[in-house]
Design a protein around this nucleic acid. Structure first.
Lengths: 126, 126
DNA sequence: AAACCATATTCTCACGAAGGAATATGCTTC
DNA sequence: GAAGCATATTCCTTCGTGAGAATATGGTTT
């Protein structure tokens, strides 16, 4: 059942936080590390988990990799992501993450714009 | 996170089917066996799993045990059960289960009524 | 109280998933 | 092409879960 696959993706706190952030728009991996405050391996592996199951998609942009929600989600996925967002609104962890995201949002936008010519040698996350 | 506990409950096909059936009202265990066509142990263990995590509650009625959805669900639980129902509408397995449930519904109602005086020695499920 | 029914629990096995440390890959810059 | 950065993968250990067989429990009937 595809529905079960979706719920399997949702039954880990780190993945829920990732999806909550992604609901705001595409984000690059190093920003995830910054926003969630979790180690690189953890972030990377959970993103891979979500990618293999089709919840998110990734695109390389020079040194960075940008993740975004699936382009054309199934009805079930759309419904559940909407439900998650509704629930997340009232849960502190998620609100904190979005607050931190807002602070670095300009950087995210800049990375997303993806003009390699202007890219500096080092990510400005830290 | 309580939200994760909910999703853990939802990431198994058998449990999804149980919850889908329960959305129609309380049901006794032997009827679950009949509707899902799964062995007793399986049903019983998954119901226990859901009960330990507060998604469902059980009540003994003579030889039978009747399960129902949690009386006062959290906002998150309510939202997710609603979402599940919406998704289930278009998925064959769930529709089949509800169809089979309908056939034995009078029996369910009778068990729920719970007049031990009239109870026969044997469940009429099979 | 013995037989019986519906349900629950225990035991064992196999498997997948999460976390961390170490290492590999792909780009980019010098 | 060597060094450096961001990200991915591998290896290992630990833990929870699902399934089935067998057995236990609690209530009921005779």
């Amino acid at each position: 059942m595809e529905l079960v696959k979706i719920y399997e993706c949702l039954c880990d706190p780190t993945r829920l936080r990732l999806l909550n952030v992604l609901a705001q728009g595409p984000v690059c991996v190093c920003h995830f590390q910054d926003v969630l405050g979790e180690p690189q391996v953890k972030i990377s592996k959970h993103l891979a988990y979500l990618r293999e199951r089709g919840l998110v998609a990734s695109e390389r942009q020079g040194n960075w990799v940008i993740y975004g929600l699936a382009a054309k989600p199934s009805r079930e996925l759309r419904a559940n992501l909407a439900c998650l967002q509704e629930c997340a609104q009232s849960i502190p962890v998620f609100k904190r993450d979005l607050a931190r995201l807002k602070k670095i949002e300009p950087l995210c936008a800049w990375v997303r714009a993806g003009d390699p010519g202007k890219a500096p040698g080092q990510c400005r996350c830290g």
